[in-house]
Amino acid sequence: MNLSRARSPWVLHYDASSCNGCDIETVACMTPLYDIERFGAISIGCPKHADILLVTGTINHKSLRVLRNIYEQMTEPKVVAAIGICATSGGVFHQSYNLLGGVDKAIPVDVYISGCPPRPEAIIDAIVMGVEKLKKKGKEGLAGSAEASSG
């Protein structure tokens, strides 16, 4: 089960309010050159199917609700990766009046990748780190549920 979890991280990409730099690099991961499908990762359009949520860009008032909603619809175990410096902390915009800051202001984040934009290798690295977290969460989740049923 955990092996399968590690080998099949389905990725959902959400653009909170990015300048599209990070988005381009994220999509580049799927091109023949980087081909993340080697690791079983595919880009999926539906949060209900996804394991890893890649968020690019800072959170503003409009994307907050959407991001939370999508996060809520994802099924456990799930991992969130903030891609790029904007998603990590707000980056150069972090004092802007209409922004809330990084992704972790809205939802729990597991992996942070800085860069403006990060290189595809770094994004793949984020996915791999996300996979590790996924495995851990999966184990914990199983243990947790076992506890709950025994208790």
């Binding site: 089960m1 092996l3 399968s4 979890r5 080998r7 099949s8 389905w10 079983g40 209900k48 394991d51 619809q73 099924t75 456990e76 175990p77 999966g138 989740g141």
Partner: peptide
């Protein structure tokens, strides 16, 4: 891998 993983995920 995909299907086994899906079985291990939470079902809503």
């Amino acid at each position: 891998y995909d299907v086994i993983k899906l079985f291990g995920k939470e079902s809503t």
